[in-house]
Structures are given as structure tokens and as C-alpha cells.
Design a protein around this nucleic acid. Structure first.
Lengths: 239, 239
DNA sequence: TGGTTAATTCAACGGTCGATGAAATCTAAT
DNA sequence: ATTAGATTTCATCGACCGTTGAATTAACCA
């Protein structure tokens, strides 16, 4: 780990500097972790791709595991800021009424899908990584909770206003289904391309978003609208 | 690899036999792969858990990778048979009318969620493994396609009858969202437990199923009903 | 310019990885 | 009982793993 004595002097025109090294490592790690997962990428794979010495991962990040968490955190903070801002804007703009469900969902999903589509390969790899972590038994619960909980709570709070009197469980399960649909989209596995014989393309995220929002909105309404009466009827019908 | 000379004699009451060894390895591998992923489980981890010699994985399965695929295939065949049977029954029972969307979805999801809930730890681990594979960039497209395509095509075909004249892409994307919601459920990461502060439990799969069916059915209807008119309006509204 | 410290390089550590060849054991049919 | 083949055990292979201490280079300050 580097000594952090005098918070980044860097005044003269450096050749590259330690910050550039850090970023090169993070960029390479991000792509490799996304492509092949945490355990099947070696620190030598990363440093070779980044064009730096192997020892620099442990010097700058402490360990491979801590590098992984740094990769995860780097873009999470940018995302959280924008998503919270958008959610807040949607809620404020609608006052004193509750916001439209579609607008809430859009504020939650658009910052992600837009960056995955147009933010460059770093963002694309980052979201593929999220897709893996979200569905992983070993990392899923902990890391997603640590870095994304504030946004999700704000999202649920906005929906709570849109569905007054709705049972909390309906809101959380509805979010759960959205989370699954969204993160599978990030993975871009190409499966839908094969299935549809080319009619759908995994990397056409605009088409996905255009459909995800009304799909999920309809799901939320089915579970969360006038909950008591609907739920009684529903429980009779299924199974 | 074992020589397959005379397809399983096994008449007398054997001590254990090679088939028992194979099953012990598969059972141990299934659980470990589900818990920690393919790359972070060593063949020694598996053989130790199974109580057999390390060399037996390569003898019976050829390699670690082929063992992984065997684990994947073993239960897939059982599942596919029942799901195809259920889908066929739903379609036949409704004739000459189209089946109800909820019934089609139930035929697709119930065999999975029911086994994950009540099939024992082997089935639970298996579905957690599916959750990882489905969202993995390296395995996702290929393995899911290889083992589950027939069922998905039958599922889409049934839905095509329920939504006559619907654009194919709407059907496939709707399936995509269902796939994401369903597989995240299998992972049982505990994230929803944390988020909801205990109001929802990841392992309460009956509650999930009870909600997944109407949620997804509403999503399908939003995208696939009287598609042309609805879609024109939808594309204006979003983004 | 000399001294201090951060950043980088290099070589190597002990450990574990997946896989395999040879020997030993067991099973089944003669 | 003998024999042939299937199964299991054992020891070990070379390769790669994450990490680290020591040596080297570069940047800053007095």
C-alpha cells in the first residue's frame, strides 16, 4: 500500500505517476473480472494486460480481493449519485401527487442501461461484473448490499408513495424481480440472440429498456395496487 | 474414463460399485460449485468432500470441466421432461382455445421452484448453480442454450398462441425478463432479507412463486397484447 | 545537491492447481 | 482357481497461484 503522506502532490508534468498505474490496473481488472469471474483471473493476467509489474497490485491495493472491491466501488459511487438525484427529481416534480411508476423505474434503470450502452467498454464490463456478483451465492448478498442499498431504499420509498397502503412485501418482491431482469440484461450472454435466431440482440440495450419499463411497471401494478383485495383473489388462483 | 463394456451388470448386492462413486462425486461437486463457483473449487475439494481418491474425477469424467457439464446435465434432463409434459398438458386442456397466460408461466416455473423448495439440498444447490451460469458471460450463452432450449421454445410457442399476432421480439424479451427474475430467485443470496429487514425471506420460494406468476403475466400482457397499437403509444412515452 | 521517501522492478517463496502413469485391488466370467 | 478387465490407490509431475523482501529508480524538499 502506498504511503498517503501529503495527498497527491503531482505538480510537475509527470511521466505517468502512481495514479495512472492505479487506473491502468483497475481498468484491466474490470474487464478481466467481467469476462471470466474473480477466481479464474490471476494477478499476473491483470498486470500483464495493464502492462505493469506483478507486485504493483499488492503495493497499490493490498491484495487481489481488495482490488476486486475497489473495482466494484469505483463506479458505484458515480452511479449512486446520479440515481439518487434522478429519483429525488422525479418525486419533487410530481408533488404534491405521487410520481408515475414508469418515471420511478426509469430513474432507477436509465443511468445504468444508458452507460452500459454508450459509456464505453469500461462501463460495459462493469455492468457485466455486477450481473455476476448479483447472482453469486458467495458475493451476492454482501457486496450488492454494501454498495447499492441507499439507492434501492430511495427507489422503494418512491414506489411506496405511488402505491399507498401497499404491503411492504409486495414492494420488495417486485423490486427483486426487477433486479433479476435488469442484471441478466447486463450480462449480455448472447442467449436471447440464439433463442430468437437473431430477432433480438443482447447488446441492443435501448430495445431492452424500452420494454423493461412497461413490463416491470405492469408487474408492480399487478402486485402492489389495492393490495388486500387483489391478493386474496390471487392466492386462490395460483398453484 | 471408464470402459463401457457391458452396460452396468450389477446383479449381486454390491458393496458400493463405480456408479455409487460417480454419484458421490456429482453430489459433492454440485454443492461446492453452487456455493463457490466453478473456478474456486478444486478437484481435491470435491474428492475430499465425496470421500474418494483425487484421481477418480479424471477417471470417471475425464476432466474437471467435463464433470461440471455432467453436473449440469444430470438434473436438466429430468426437469425438461416434466416441463415439456406440463406445457403440453396445459395447451391440450385449453383446446381449442389458447391457454391462460398464468397457466403457461406456472408450467414453466413450478417444476423448478417446487424442487428448489422441497427437493432437498441437491436440488437447491443445482438451482443456485443455474443462477450463476445464467448470468455468467463465459458460460451463460452456451450451456443454458445447450440444455434448456427445447423447453424455452415450447414455452414461447404456447405463449404465441395466447398472444396471436404478437411481434416475436416482444415474446422473446418478455421471456428474457422472466428468466432473470426466476434465476435471481434461485440464487437465494439473502439480499432481499437484508433490504426488507426480514419482511421477505430469500428461501421462502412459495411466496416468490405466488407473486412471480401474476407479476410476469402482467408484464407479458403489457408487451404482447394487441401489440401494434400499444407499442406505438409506448415508444412515445419512454425516455 | 544531497537526503528522504514514494514508486517500481526483480527474483523468489511456499503452496496449490489439474492431471497422469504405474501399481494395487476388486469384480466377473471362465 | 485363473485370468482379463474394470476400478481404485498412490506418488508425483510441471505449471501456476498470491504474495513479499530486497534492490533499484524516480520525484520532491531543504
Amino acid at each position: 500500500m502506498p504511503k498517503t503522506k501529503k495527498a497527491a502532490p503531482v505538480r510537475g508534468p509527470r511521466k505517468a505517476g502512481p495514479e495512472a498505474t492505479r487506473q491502468k490496473i483497475l481498468d484491466a481488472a474490470e474487464i478481466l473480472f467481467a469476462e471470466r469471474g474473480f477466481h479464474s483471473v490471476s494477478v499476473r493476467d491483470i498486470t500483464t494486460a495493464a502492462g505493469v509489474d506483478v507486485a504493483l497490485i499488492n503495493y497499490h491495493f493490498g491484495s487481489k480481493q481488495l482490488l476486486f472491491e475497489t473495482v466494484f466501488m469505483r463506479r458505484a459511487e458515480l452511479l449512486n449519485a446520479e440515481r439518487l438525484r434522478r429519483l429525488e427529481a422525479v418525486v419533487q416534480r410530481a408533488k404534491p401527487r405521487a410520481p408515475k411508476v414508469e418515471e420511478i423505474i426509469d430513474a432507477f434503470t436509465h443511468p445504468l442501461l444508458d452507460r452500459s450502452a454508450r459509456g464505453g467498454p469500461g462501463w460495459k464490463a462493469y455492468f457485466a461484473l455486477i450481473a455476476q456478483v448479483n447472482n453469486s451465492t458467495e458475493f451476492g448478498g454482501l457486496m450488492m448490499t454494501r454498495y447499492f442499498d441507499p439507492v434501492v431504499h430511495a427507489f422503494i420509498a418512491a414506489l411506496r408513495r405511488a402505491f399507498p397502503g401497499c404491503d411492504e412485501r409486495e414492494l420488495y418482491w417486485s423490486y427483486h424481480f426487477l433486479s433479476g431482469a435488469l442484471t441478466l440484461t447486463f450480462a449480455e450472454t448472447g442467449r436471447i440472440d440464439n433463442l430468437s435466431q437473431g430477432a433480438c440482440r443482447s447488446n441492443d440495450l435501448d430495445s431492452v429498456h424500452e420494454r423493461l419499463v412497461p413490463y416491470v411497471a405492469a408487474g408492480f401494478r399487478a402486485l402492489c395496487s389495492k393490495s388486500s383485495a387483489t391478493n386474496v383473489r390471487r392466492k386462490r388462483r395460483v398453484l
